[in-house]
């Protein structure tokens, strides 16, 4: 197998989602631009160029309001599955494995192997950072996305208010406004439903070959087993 084909084969999952992410983002961009310009036309205003739309509050808000909720979903799921169990779910730890587990279980300090990351061995702040790095990264992306959504949403909401001959809101006032929380919560509820139903449905339903599912023949009561 050539090295290029090996890279593709070894990274198929990440590359597949990167490609369909970019295709969906480009599709969203052009659909959003068309919708924005339809609205402009209906208001008797000039249409805008794709370059202006790319940096518009409209596009930035539409993108980041979905990003923040997706990263929040994974952040909460990663954290919740440390302590909470769902009996029978392949997504859950077994009852006796709930919690942060011992250093031996987590291959830390003297329990590392030669291939372990260096920060797993050093102890102190570095090991603490590595031990929580997934949640830290997810949390940071969530917060930045939510911040950008709030600022973009503020700009977008005020643009609409000015079209209606109303005073614009201040940023703090927008953070208390129904528009901000409606955009936020409509995304959160769908993510919470999806991840919760995944945890529960995977008790009884299977997808042969997927690590997100139990083996097809595994008992419904088996917890934390992946196939």
């Amino acid at each position: 197998m050539s090295s290029a084909r090996r890279v593709l084969a070894d990274n198929g999952l990440g590359l597949f989602f990167a490609v369909i992410f970019l295709m969906a983002l480009v599709g969203q961009f052009f659909a959003g631009l068309a919708q924005f310009n339809n609205d402009q036309h209906a208001e008797g205003l000039d249409t805008i160029t794709w370059a202006d739309y790319l940096t518009s509050a409209d596009f930035v808000t539409d993108v980041t309001e979905n990003w923040q909720s997706e990263y929040l979903q994974f952040l909460l799921y990663i954290l919740a599955t440390v302590w909470l169990i769902q009996r029978g779910s392949p997504e859950s730890a077994a009852r006796d494995e709930a919690g942060r587990e011992s250093d031996a279980d987590q291959m830390l300090g003297e329990h590392t192997v030669p291939e372990s990351p260096r920060w797993a061995r050093t102890g102190g702040v570095r090991t603490t950072v590595l031990s929580n790095s997934l949640v830290l990264a997810m949390g940071l992306i969530f917060l930045v996305s939510w911040l950008v959504q709030s600022i973009g949403g503020w700009g977008m909401y005020n643009e609409t208010r000015l079209q209606r001959m109303q005073d614009p809101l201040t940023y703090p006032a927008y953070l208390l406004n129904a528009d901000f929380w409606s955009r936020t919560l409509q995304n959160w509820q769908s993510e919470f439903l999806a991840v919760g139903s995944m945890a529960v449905l995977s008790i009884y339903l299977r997808q042969r070959g997927s690590p997100e599912s139990k083996p097809v023949g595994a008992a419904h009561a088996d917890t934390g087993e992946t196939g």
Binding site: L45, D58, L162
Partner: peptide, 23 residues
């Protein structure tokens, strides 16, 4: 003066105007 996207508002002591961006 406040500008949001393609819309703006200018407040004077004696009037308020709303402006929009055209080509």
């Amino acid at each position: 003066t406040e500008v949001f996207g393609t819309m703006a508002q200018v407040r004077y002591a004696g009037d308020v105007a709303f402006l929009a961006q055209f080509d």
